[in-house]
Simulated assay, not measured.
Amino acid sequence: MKKLLLTSLLLTISYTIFAQSKSQLGVRMGLNNAKVLNSGLDNKSGLYTGLFLAVRLTDSYTMQPEIIYSNQGGKASYRNGEDLNINYVSIALANKFFVSKNQGFHFILGPSLDINFDDNFINLINDNGANLEITPIDLAVFGGIGYEFDFGLALELRYKQGLIDLDFNDSGEYGGNAEENQLNRVFQIGLAYKFNM
């Protein structure tokens, strides 16, 4: 009985919060400047694009679940221009903290789960007979700043740091130190737009 009451109470509170909040669907798109840390790869340009749902819970806080396509990896000039391309679907939860009540300038913080659905890394066999592949998922944290205009357009600058080793350095394919983790690092600059619903 207590579990039923507690569940009912939580559902009522959640419904009340979301019913009083203003939710808007939107799109994000822009440019990535990506690098794989502790490898021989240089910075590489790519694109990101996707959808989000902005849930304005208070005057100064918006919770924003996102699903984003992001092209990352690194530039490998010493391999005849064959860059490492890693294509991720990122499922993120951006938390936006506004400096004033009237939108405008804000800080962005959050986590993301990045799923590698395609890459051009050539599967190799190491000296122990193991098949070498890039790690299929990455956990990342991100932070940034932005400015949102009254008509729904926002300018954003974000930094995203991967936390899981890509685990390809044993191949010797991209240089770097095999003793150190190869981590994604991405700077993002772009636009976001919220549709009026």
Rank of each mutant, 00 (worst) to 15 (best):
K2E: 15
K2W: 11
K2R: 15
K3Q: 12
K3N: 15
L4V: 11
S8L: 14
L9G: 04
I13M: 13
T16L: 10
I17T: 15
I17Y: 11
I17K: 11
I17Q: 09
F18D: 05
S21E: 07
S21W: 09
L25G: 12
G26A: 04
R28H: 14
L31R: 07
N33H: 10
A34K: 04
K35Y: 01
V36A: 02
N38T: 01
G40A: 11
L41A: 03
K44Y: 04
S45Y: 03
S45K: 00
S45Q: 03
G50W: 05
F52D: 01
L53Q: 09
L53V: 12
A54C: 05
A54Y: 02
Q64C: 04
P65S: 07
Y69T: 02
S70T: 12
Q72P: 07
Q72A: 10
Q72V: 11
G73P: 00
G73H: 03
G74N: 05
K75H: 13
K75M: 06
Y78M: 02
Y78D: 07
D83E: 10
N85W: 10
N85C: 00
V89S: 03
S90I: 04
S90C: 07
I91H: 06
A92C: 02
A94P: 02
N95C: 04
K96L: 14
K96A: 07
K96Y: 04
V99G: 00
S100V: 11
K101E: 10
G104V: 04
F105P: 11
H106F: 14
P111W: 07
P111K: 10
L113C: 03
L113F: 15
D114V: 01
D114A: 05
D114T: 02
D114Y: 02
F117V: 15
D118Q: 13
I122F: 01
I122K: 12
N123T: 14
N123C: 06
L124M: 11
D127H: 09
N128E: 14
G129Q: 03
G129F: 00
E133P: 00
I134D: 06
I134C: 08
T135I: 05
P136R: 11
I137K: 11
I137H: 12
A140R: 01
A140N: 07
A140G: 08
V141P: 02
F142D: 05
G143D: 00
I145L: 15
G146L: 01
Y147R: 05
Y147W: 12
Y147H: 10
E148S: 15
E148T: 09
A154Q: 09
L157C: 01
L157T: 09
D165G: 05
S171D: 06
G172W: 02
Y174R: 06
G176L: 01
G176H: 00
A178Q: 13
A178H: 05
E179R: 08
E180S: 10
L183M: 08
L183K: 13
L183C: 05
L183D: 07
N184G: 01
V186A: 01
Q188A: 13
Q188S: 08
G190M: 06
A192W: 00
Y193K: 02
Y193H: 09
N196Y: 10
N196L: 13
M197W: 10
M197P: 06
